[in-house]
């Protein structure tokens, strides 16, 4: 569930830091690099509020020859002057492929990756159910139309044009041979 954040003091701001880490790191290296990141923020007066790990994710395009990576999202309360220093320090981190440090907008809600994925799945299911219902209704209408069509064709009176009583040629010869007809 999304959670609203507590209001900050005048001297601090809340920043969102998104970091893309390499997948080639071992567990030990990963914990070390995460500790280094924490230290980097704490040295500059940062206070961690939230953390979310996305896990193994495929990238839309290769970044530094990596086709996979793991995203980490942090929420930090920082003094405003520290953001620039942290941004430049993150560039020097070897394990970090890309990073994004932004000031959070108004009405920001922190949603974890798991929650968002669950909501997406639910939405997908809902759309699929709606489509199925529409398909069933269309099929029902088609069956009803075919049934009515069959009834109408049965009730139609037999006409010579449809080959009901004799062929058209016979009827024509009858009409032409009529003595009362003056052509």
């Amino acid at each position: 569930m999304p959670t609203t954040l507590p209001s900050t003091t005048d001297n601090t701001r809340i920043y969102e830091c998104m970091v893309l880490l390499s997948m080639q790191l071992s567990e030990k290296e990963l914990t070390q690099s995460l500790r280094a990141l924490d230290q980097l923020f704490e040295e500059r007066g940062g206070k961690k509020l939230k953390q979310d790990a996305w896990g193994r994710q495929g990238l839309a395009f290769p970044i530094k020859k990596h086709r996979e990576g793991q995203y980490m999202v942090f929420l930090y309360e920082l003094p405003p002057g520290a953001a620039q220093a942290i941004d430049s320090a993150l560039r020097l981190e070897k394990a970090v492929l890309r990073h994004l440090l932004i000031k959070i907008p108004k009405h920001y809600e922190f949603v974890t990756f798991v929650d968002r994925a669950a909501a997406w799945e639910k939405e997908k299911e809902k759309v699929m159910q709606e489509r199925e219902q529409e398909r069933e209704e269309a099929l029902k209408q088609k069956i009803v139309h075919q049934a009515t069509k069959a009834i109408v064709t049965k009730d139609l009176p037999s006409s010579p044009l449809l080959g009901g009583e004799g062929s058209i040629d016979e009827k024509l010869t009858e009409l032409i041979s009529d003595e009362d007809l003056h052509l």
Binding site: M18, L59, A60, F61, I63, Y71, R98, L100, I102
Partner: peptide
């Protein structure tokens, strides 16, 4: 633009 930078969406 931010999602593209982070490799979530392709350019």
């Amino acid at each position: 633009e931010r999602a593209r930078f982070m490799g979530i969406i392709a350019y």
